[in-house]
Amino acid sequence: MTDRHDHRIEIDKDAVRRDLMKLVLTIVELLRQLMERQAIRRVENSELSEEQEEDLGTALMLLSDAMDELTEQFGLTPADLNLELGPLGPLLPRDR
């Protein structure tokens, strides 16, 4: 066994693109879920006017649709948009 074997690099452009997209989408999905939960919390605490609630909800709904589209476009599933953080568990809840 030579060391050189370990240094072999396989360049697969599609895979790189998909991986990068996956990472980006994962971060966006994290932010989307955070915002969504924050919005729900604020609705529960009656901190939003009806108009604000409607606007926020619409925006989040559209973002959710956009995420679904993008995920599908890149051949990913919602489960792919997650990271295992070892002892901390997954980045996102498993069932969104």
Binding site: E50, E53, L56, G57, T58, M61, S64
Partner: peptide
Amino acid sequence: RPTSGAAYLRARREALRAG
């Protein structure tokens, strides 16, 4: 599909709670 932003938020809240 929720017909309004408010309905969407309500649906998401229910889903999270149910989970």
